[in-house]
């Protein structure tokens, strides 16, 4: 748990430095609290020994509730998220997915969740960036290296190395970096 939290916070500091913010100041933003509480929730879920697991889950539930109230970020421990997970800014963030890869970044107003009549939750690959206000809903699969632009609505599968933009979403290839 602690190694993953340290990786998350390192990634957070690097992202803040890249955006020109103070890297140590980003440790006190509310996204950091939500990530730590989420990691604790995963840890509590994985505990097999019931005498430790039940109190841990109880503490987790209280912490989760107050984090929701304080930050407006609701990342349920059901979602399996890889290391280096960054939450930038706060309020209106709901993340509930089957599986999310490494280097995942969400901004404010993002919803990842299910939709009426679709049983499965989204599966998201590595190095995915969700910009403010976008909604990713339904039983879709998103590949690696994807950027989803602000306020777009994604309801279908997205291939790897692409940019998604618009409501409903259009998929464009990622421009090459050279």
């Amino acid at each position: 748990m602690f190694r993953t939290i340290r990786a998350d916070l390192d990634a957070r500091r690097r992202a803040a430095a890249a955006a020109g913010e103070s890297p140590w100041g980003s440790m006190w933003q509310r996204g950091a609290i939500a990530v730590i509480v989420y990691r604790f929730g995963r840890f509590a879920r994985a505990l097999k020994f019931p005498l430790l697991g039940l109190p841990a889950k109880l503490i987790y539930y209280v912490l989760f509730y107050f984090t929701q109230m304080l930050t407006g970020i609701s990342i349920q421990a059901y979602a399996k998220i890889g290391p280096r997970f960054v939450v930038r800014n706060h309020t209106g963030i709901f993340v509930l997915a089957e599986q999310i890869g490494a280097d995942f970044t969400v901004c404010e107003g993002v919803t990842v969740g299910n939709i009426r009549g679709k049983g499965r939750l989204p599966i998201i690959g590595d190095r995915v960036y969700l910009e403010p206000g976008c909604k990713v809903l339904g039983n879709l699969t998103i590949g690696d290296d994807v950027v989803i632009r602000a306020n777009s609505l994604v309801l279908n599968d997205v291939p790897s190395r692409s940019i998604v933009i618009g409501n409903p979403a259009r998929v464009l290839p990622m421009p090459s970096e050279d």
Binding site: T111, I115, G133, C134, K135, L137, N151, S152, L153, N167
Partner: peptide, 11 residues
């Protein structure tokens, strides 16, 4: 808005 209306996400 009439009866039985569903408004999609982000619209």
């Amino acid at each position: 808005l009439g009866n039985n209306v569903a408004v999609g996400a982000n619209s």
